[in-house]
Structures are given as structure tokens and as C-alpha cells.
């Protein structure tokens, strides 16, 4: 049961744009902790088993990035030890860890994005801003599986006339593969002209293009979108007045824990937690409905 997916594409896109944009931006430790925590939670909520498979990729990446920075950067006041007269500092290590956290969270956000913004949603969104580009994109996207099918057909037909690309000497195989690709390209280009003429015959370019979609902007979409916008503004405000600024060099700046800052941290948490809150709400509703049955 994934409730966040059922929201209007605009809402989902706005959330990811805000989340990824802000995650790239904030290097403050408190913010980083919030980011990585919520990115991991959303990943578990949306991708379950898939996420635990990907861990093998993220952990080495994380440590690689964390190790490289202190070797490159020798700034900072708290020196741990020296390698070849180059200081290895606490600041550089922590900075490397922070960068690693940031990058891993962005990759995690993107894997959630890939899960929720399917291609039809993407084309629906960009069809309004850039109709020609998204038309090209959607034709191209559709052609890929078609070409794969056609490749299969062509290679079967070639096999019958003794041009099997899987048998014979290496030279023969290469020759057959090139033949198949050449046939595919000729076929594809000729076919493209047919499609284009058919589009023209049906009046492409005369009026405004209509497109089919099942997405309806409901009231709940409006509410969530307003919420995202409001929290985004609050966070931009926080970064303008300097709440999110944090210096690693020459030495760490102090993390503030007064009420104002805690409220800003909460607003960031709330913004990134929107899909998780929606998922949890959906889950509870589903359980309640089931228990009533």
C-alpha cells in the first residue's frame, strides 16, 4: 500500500525538488542527521527489500568518500597525526563524513524519486512546460522496447538465411551483428517517416495538442502542495538568516539549541517527513478499514 504515489504528480515532484534541493544545500550537522534519517525511512517505506539489497553499494561509497577528504584537505585546527608532513585533522574527517552523508542521502532521494515519479508522470509534468520536447521524449521512450522487439525479429529472420549472429567465427558474428543493426536503423528511419506523415495527416501542429492523463488535482493535493511551499519558504528563510550555516574550517562552529533554531530544525523535519506521514496515515486507514470488515 503506497499512498504517496497516488498524489498528483505536481505534488510529488514539488516534494522531491524541495527535498533534493535543500539536501544539497544544508551542511549543518543537525540538518544532515534529519536528512539521512528521513531519506532512509522513506526508502524503507517505499522500496522495502530493494533498499536492503542496495546497502552493499551505499556503505562502501560512504566510507570511500569519508576517507578521501582528510587525505586531500589539510585544513583545520584539531590535528590528529601527520602523514608525510601533511596534517590529518578532525575537521577534515568530519567534513568528509558530512559530504558523504549528503551525497548518500541525495542518491537515496533519487531512488525514491525513481520509484514514485514514473515516466508517464514525468512526461505529463513536462508536457505543459515544453510540449515538443516531451513529445520527442515520449516517442523515443516508446521506441526503445519496439526496437528491442524488432531486433529479435530481424535476428530470427537472418538466422533462417544463414546469418546467425550466435554461431560461426568471430568475424562472421561481428558481420551478422552489424547487418542486423544496419537493417534495424533503415527500418526505424523509414518507419519514423511513416509515423510523422500520419501525425501530420491527423493535424499535428494546427491546434493545441491534447493529451490523455488520469491525474486529477484534488483538494488534498492542494493542501499538501501549499504545505510543501510554506515549509520550503520557512527553510529558505532559515538559510537566509543563517540558521543553516555551519563552518568546518578553520574549526567547527557551534550548534545552537535555542527555541528559534529548534523550531527551524522541526520545520525541516516536517518538510522531509511529508511522504512518510502520508504513508503512515494511509497504513493506519487501511488497518482500520480492514478491522471493520
Amino acid at each position: 500500500m503506497k499512498s504517496f504515489e497516488t498524489f498528483h504528480p505536481l505534488v510529488i515532484f514539488a516534494f522531491f525538488a524541495a527535498a533534493i534541493g535543500l539536501s544539497m544545500f544544508f551542511m549543518h550537522p543537525a540538518y544532515l542527521v534529519i536528512t539521512i534519517f528521513l531519506a532512509v525511512s522513506l526508502n524503507i517505506a517505499l522500496r522495502r527489500g530493494q533498499f536492503f539489497k542496495d546497502w552493499k553499494l551505499y556503505v562502501p561509497l560512504f566510507f570511500l568518500m569519508a576517507i578521501i577528504n582528510p587525505l586531500i584537505s589539510h585544513n583545520g585546527k584539531l590535528v590528529l597525526f601527520y602523514i608525510n608532513y601533511n596534517a590529518i585533522t578532525v575537521e577534515a574527517i568530519v567534513y568528509g563524513l558530512s559530504i558523504a552523508t549528503m551525497i548518500v542521502s541525495i542518491i537515496l532521494w533519487f531512488s525514491c524519486y525513481n520509484e514514485t515519479i514514473t515516466t508517464d508522470k514525468f512526461i505529463y509534468l513536462f508536457g505543459k512546460i515544453s510540449p515538443v520536447f516531451s513529445l520527442t521524449l515520449s516517442i523515443s521512450l516508446r521506441l526503445v522496447p519496439r526496437f528491442q522487439q524488432q531486433l529479435h525479429k530481424i535476428s530470427n529472420a537472418q538466422k533462417v538465411i544463414g546469418m546467425d549472429y550466435r554461431s560461426g567465427s568471430l568475424l562472421h558474428r561481428i558481420k551478422c551483428t552489424l547487418r542486423i543493426i544496419s537493417i534495424l536503423i533503415t527500418w526505424a528511419l523509414d518507419n519514423a517517416i511513416d509515423t510523422a506523415d500520419s501525425m501530420k495527416a491527423r493535424g499535428y501542429g494546427i491546434g493545441k495538442r491534447t493529451s490523455f492523463s488520469l491525474f486529477i488535482f484534488e483538494r488534498r493535493d492542494g493542501i499538501v502542495l501549499l504545505f510543501i511551499m510554506f515549509l520550503l519558504m520557512v527553510n529558505i528563510w532559515a538559510s537566509i538568516i543563517g540558521t543553516t550555516t555551519f563552518y568546518f574550517y578553520p574549526t567547527f562552529s557551534i550548534i545552537q539549541w535555542d527555541l528559534k533554531n529548534i523550531l527551524f530544525y522541526c520545520s525541516y523535519f516536517l518538510l522531509l517527513a511529508i511522504p512518510i506521514i502520508i504513508e503512515i496515515k494511509g497504513g493506519i486507514e487501511w488497518k482500520l478499514l480492514k478491522s471493520k470488515m
Binding site: 510540449p131 526496437f147 526505424a188 517517416i193
Partner: peptide, 22 residues
């Protein structure tokens, strides 16, 4: 976008992209 390309141009660009993706 502003040039309002003909369907044939759009299709050929789409085909070349699809070939490279394949």
C-alpha cells in the same frame, strides 16, 4: 521548442535517441 519543428524532425531525433538507448 520555439521553432515549432515538423513531425519528421521530431521523429528522426526520437529514433536516433532510441537507437542509442537501445
Amino acid at each position: 521548442e520555439r521553432r515549432k519543428p515538423q513531425p519528421r524532425e521530431i521523429l528522426i531525433i526520437a529514433v536516433m535517441s532510441a537507437i542509442s538507448v537501445t
